[in-house]
């Protein structure tokens, strides 16, 4: 079993005719994902390496039975693309686009909450379940191994680093998911933790946070109450200055709140073993799986 994506995934890409959209759609298909088509307004009727292109998401769903969408639409139009996917009844919407205005995300999140759709991202690498050979995102597929560790993160490349460490230690992954670096993510840490807790394939969880907001504190509270699987964590940004945005729109210590130190304290207090060094994310997970406690 896997969460969010799997053997039942029928994927379309919104923005399939763009450079990144095309490249990653094909990479997902090569990995084993069931890709059924794509959408680019005005390009309906064309095809991309054998994949049919439609003008609208509704049409793509009607013609292909798509239930999952991956969005590469430019930031100015990405909010509308998410709304279109919700309207068409897409179940899992993975938005890769970075730099969407915060107000658009606020408005989109309202629509997500009022729907049955799940939004992963924006501004994240997507989601991959190696055991199901399902990849909906931009992560390099080959670093992943099937296994029992669920990885959830606010970062892209730092997640690759973690997965690379895990795979090197022989710890495969059930599902790896980036919730994205923006202030209003579609899916939160707690949403994913809830799924990992219920997923029989997931035996342990690695959570990778960063400065800004209180998502890690909420995750800690959730783990304490609802998760009895081993959990390890890392939080980046201990050296980040206050009041400066560190690349991600959501990675900012505002009004002295959202520091790495606060988050580590909250995670440790919930019984989660926190790696001090990013070089030790894999080893910390391994220690937790072998029964080490805080």
């Amino acid at each position: 079993m896997s969460i969010y994506v799997g053997k039942d995934t029928r994927l379309i890409t919104q923005g399939i005719t763009g450079g990144a959209g095309k490249f990653h759609t094909l990479a997902c298909r090569d990995y084993g994902t069931n890709v059924v088509g794509g959408v680019t307004p005005g390009r309906g009727g064309e095809d991309v390496e054998g994949l049919p292109v439609f003008d609208t998401v509704r049409e793509a769903v009607q013609e292909t039975g798509a239930n999952t969408s991956m969005i590469f639409v430019p930031a100015a139009f990405a909010g509308d693309a998410i709304l279109e996917a919700i309207d068409a009844g897409i179940e899992v919407i993975v938005c890769i686009t970075e730099g969407i205005p915060a107000l658009d995300e606020v408005r989109v999140k309202q629509a997500v909450r009022a729907s049955d759709s799940v939004l992963i991202g924006p501004n994240g690498p997507g989601v991959i379940s190696p055991g199901a050979q399902a990849k909906v995102g931009i992560m390099p597929g080959y670093i992943h191994k099937p296994g029992g560790i669920g990885v959830v993160s606010r970062s892209g490349t730092l997640t690759y680093e973690a997965v690379w460490q895990l795979s090197g230690l022989g710890l495969g992954q059930s599902t790896c998911l980036g919730i994205g670096g923006d202030p209003v993510p579609g899916t939160l840490f707690v949403d994913t933790l809830e799924r990992f807790a219920d997923d029989p394939e997931t035996e342990g969880i690695l959570l990778i946070g960063e400065i800004g907001g209180t998502a890690e504190e909420e995750a800690a509270a959730f783990v304490k109450e609802h998760v009895d699987k081993p959990v390890a964590a890392f939080v980046s940004g201990a050296t980040a200055p206050k009041g400066k945005r560190m690349g991600h729109a959501g990675a900012i210590i505002a009004g002295g709140k959202g520091t790495a130190a606060e988050k580590k304290v909250a995670l440790s207090a919930a019984g989660i073993l926190v790696a001090e060094s990013p070089a030790d994310m894999g080893r910390t997970m391994q220690a937790v799986m072998q029964g080490q406690k805080v």
Binding site: R154, A240, H248, E276
Partner: peptide, 25 residues
Amino acid sequence: NGAGLAMATMDIVKLHGGEPANFLD
């Protein structure tokens, strides 16, 4: 490359006794 990895790189420099001069993603 990447904001999270860039912050983590600053952190690991500090952990080994150095001081980062910048964040650059």
